[in-house]
Design a protein around this nucleic acid. Structure first.
Lengths: 206, 206
DNA sequence: CTATGTGAATGATTTCACAGCT
DNA sequence: AGCTGTGAAATCATTCACATAG
């Protein structure tokens, strides 16, 4: 498959969110223009994004909402569910455990990991908090697809090395460091301070 | 000022993070190559990013760590602190209240807002939870610079309309909807499901 | 001699505009 | 008649490569 831009993939995910809304409200058909307006982009952009993967619409008509949603789920690899662990059961880790959006979209948080003996054995939203030292043993029994890293900065790289060694190929990193991983491991970073700094820049320069 | 790419601004913020590390460990001097390696980019990219704003290095030598950090803070508008409110005192809102990174970087969370009478009046990490209905009255007394929106999807647009009307010009949105705001209001979206879907796409296509 | 700063070249992404289906 | 799908054009971002300053 031809290399697809990160920005395109992110927009596809956004289009899928809109299609889910349309599905819920029973809308049958949608035009590229309608998706564009909703997502703050242009109809040409929507059509171009889709065209990398096939042609899913009917000319003069638009797209079938359920069909396009299905195609996007297929493209994004969402026809299956994913098993996830969250490493770090602090405030953010616990909040992630309670976040319903993950489950609703097929991302199943199977376990939290922490090193605080007071937390180990507890649950958050019925998800168990396990001893971080058991990570390798647990993953060897049943591998997970993705890990969310919400440890302090100092612990993140070591945890990630262990996750990678255990076979995890996709990471969502909240720690404020740039992780070093092999080429076949995908990392996405979430940095709230960085987002606020981008807002700060924006406020100042306009 | 010439229009600067979003991607450049985000990298500047990243460079600043690295410079803060260097400052802490007392490193005096850094090269574009060192910053590049750290951030997974190239030295040419680093120099180009900086060149949009001036020339801060010494040829044959590199950059003074404290000086470059200062310049970046200045460029990003971080020579001051910002007052922030968090709307929605659910799990994520509470986690944000406990997040030390905000305060450390000059983003001061002054208040949480919620509509649940059981939560109103409580505190999270000594930040008060106030009645959402008081938003306008409070902001009229003392305006905030930014708001973080962590309400359910259904409530987000209405809250944002009120924040905008009250004069807030910068929003960080966690709600899974595309917000409609006037042109002079900046919005950055954080969508964890979108990040996981991007990981899903990545896992499948390599 | 070393590492910056920067035009010029290359590469990537978005927009345009219209032919082609339905 | 209307909206998609798509090459071609335009714009935007990154990389190259080297003159220049310390």
């Amino acid at each position: 498959m031809r290399k697809i831009a990160e920005s395109t993939v992110r927009r596809l995910s956004l289009y899928l969110r809109f299609l889910e809304d349309f599905e819920r409200q029973g809308t049958e058909t949608v035009s590229s223009e309608a998706l564009a307006t909703r997502g703050g982009t242009t109809s040409a952009q929507v059509r171009k994004d889709l065209s990398f993967f096939g042609s899913f619409g009917k000319r003069g008509f638009g797209y079938s909402v359920p069909e396009l949603a299905g195609r996007l789920r297929d493209i994004l690899g969402l026809e299956r569910t994913y098993r996830i662990v969250v490493v770090g059961a602090g405030n953010i880790g616990a909040a992630l455990a309670h976040f319903r959006g993950f489950e609703q979209h097929g991302f199943h948080v199977v376990s939290l990991y922490d090193c605080d003996p007071k937390k180990i054995g507890q649950k958050r939203n019925s998800i168990p908090i396990r001893d971080q030292r058991r990570l390798e043993a647990d993953l060897a029994k049943e591998l997970v697809d993705m890990a969310i890293v919400v440890t302090p900065a100092g612990a993140a790289q070591e945890i990630v090395d262990r996750l990678v060694k255990a076979g995890v190929k996709a990471l969502l990193n909240f720690a404020p460091i740039q992780l070093r991983v092999p080429d076949d491991v995908i990392v996405k970073n979430v940095s709230l301070v960085l987002e606020l700094e981008a807002l700060s820049y924006g406020l100042r320069n306009r």
